[in-house]
C-alpha cells in the first residue's frame, strides 16, 4: 500500500515530480487549456507547449539517473484529462520551422522515455487525445480509469497528422489496418475498446480519481524492489523496444547479450537461490 509522494513543480511549473518510498517516479502533467501553468479556477487539461516538454525531459532524466527509481509513472493532473495534446492556440503562433523543432524535441523526449531501461506506466486518469495518446504510447503499460475518458488521434481534422510518433507507434501497437482506420477517421473511443485492441492493458473500475491513483500505485508497486527483479524488467523492456525494430537475427543477438548481462547479476543468483530454497526473493536491482 504505497502512498502518493509529495510532488514538486519542475522549473517551468508544467510538470510535478516526486518519488515514492519504493522507487516509483511520478511525472504528473499539469497545465491549463493554453498550456500555461495552472492558476486558480482553471481546469487541468494538461496540454503541452515547448516549456512542458522541457519539464518532461528533465523529469525523465531525473528518474533515469536516480538509482532508487525502478518504475516511472505518467499521469495527468486533475480529474478529466491525462493530456489533451499540444495546445492549439500555442501551435497557431509558431512558424513552420519552429513547429518542426518543437516536434523534434517532443520526439526526442519520448525516445528517451522509451529507451530508459525502467518500466514506464501511463495511468490514464482521463482523456488521452492527440499528443496525449502519443505520450501514453511511448509508455510500456497503459491503464485506463473506467468511464472516465477516451483515446484517439484526431489530428486529421486539423489537416495534419499525429506527428509525435503517433502514426509510427499506433501502427506498431495495434497493427496497420486498425491504425489506419483510427487515424484517418480521427475518431475517439473508449478505454474498453482500446483494451480490446491491446492499446490499453487494463481498465480499472476504481470509484473515483483518487482511488484510481491508489490502485495504479499498487499495481506499479509490484514492479519495484525488493519484490520484483527490476533489472530484468529493464532488460526485457530494452529487448522488446529496441529489438522489434531490427532484423530477427540481430534481435536474438541483442537478447543474448541482455540475458548474459542478467546472468552476471546478483538478482539472478538471488532469484534462483530463493526458488530452490522455497523463499520469496528480495532483489536489489543489480
Amino acid at each position: 500500500m504505497t502512498s502518493w509522494p509529495e510532488l514538486e513543480a519542475m522549473p517551468n511549473k508544467l510538470v510535478n515530480y516526486g518519488v515514492t518510498d519504493n522507487g516509483i517516479a511520478i511525472i504528473e502533467l499539469c497545465s491549463d487549456s493554453d498550456g500555461n501553468p495552472l492558476t486558480e479556477g482553471k481546469t487541468s487539461v494538461n496540454t503541452y507547449t515547448r516549456s512542458m516538454w522541457e519539464d518532461i525531459d528533465q523529469a525523465i532524466l531525473n528518474a533515469r539517473f536516480d538509482d532508487d527509481v525502478t518504475v516511472i509513472m505518467m499521469i495527468g493532473h486533475g480529474e478529466k484529462f491525462f493530456s489533451a495534446g499540444a495546445s492549439i492556440n500555442y501551435l497557431n503562433t509558431l512558424t513552420p520551422r519552429y513547429k518542426y523543432f518543437f516536434c523534434l524535441h517532443a520526439n526526442e523526449t519520448l525516445s528517451r522515455l522509451e529507451q530508459t531501461p525502467k518500466l514506464v506506466i501511463a495511468a490514464l486518469n482521463g482523456h488521452a487525445i492527440g499528443g496525449g495518446l502519443e505520450i501514453a504510447m511511448a509508455a510500456d503499460i497503459r491503464i485506463g480509469l473506467k468511464d472516465n475518458g477516451s483515446v484517439g488521434l484526431p489530428e486529421v481534422s486539423l489537416g495534419v497528422l499525429a506527428g509525435t510518433g503517433g502514426t509510427a507507434r499506433l501502427s506498431r501497437l495495434v497493427g496497420k489496418a486498425k491504425a489506419m482506420e483510427i487515424m484517418v477517421t480521427g475518431r475517439k473511443f473508449s478505454f474498453e475498446e482500446a483494451q480490446e485492441m491491446d492499446l490499453v492493458h487494463d481498465v480499472y473500475d476504481s470509484t473515483n480519481n483518487e482511488e484510481f491513483r491508489s490502485d495504479v500505485m499498487d499495481y506499479a508497486s509490484q514492479f519495484t524492489l525488493p519484490y520484483a527483479a527490476a533489472k530484468a524488467i529493464g532488460n526485457i523492456k530494452r529487448s522488446v523496444q529496441s529489438g522489434m525494430e531490427i532484423p530477427l537475427e540481430y534481435h536474438l543477438a541483442l537478447e543474448r547479450e541482455l540475458q548474459s548481462d542478467l546472468f552476471q547479476s546478483n538478482d539472478a543468483k538471488t532469484g534462483i537461490a530463493a526458488y530452490v530454497e522455497k523463499k520469496t526473493p528480495r532483489f536489489e536491482g543489480a
Partner: peptide, 13 residues
C-alpha cells in the same frame, strides 16, 4: 506486513 485487500497490493504475480 498489512494483509492485502486488493489484487494490486499482492506483491508478486
Amino acid at each position: 506486513m498489512p494483509k492485502w485487500e486488493r489484487r494490486m497490493q499482492i506483491p508478486q504475480q
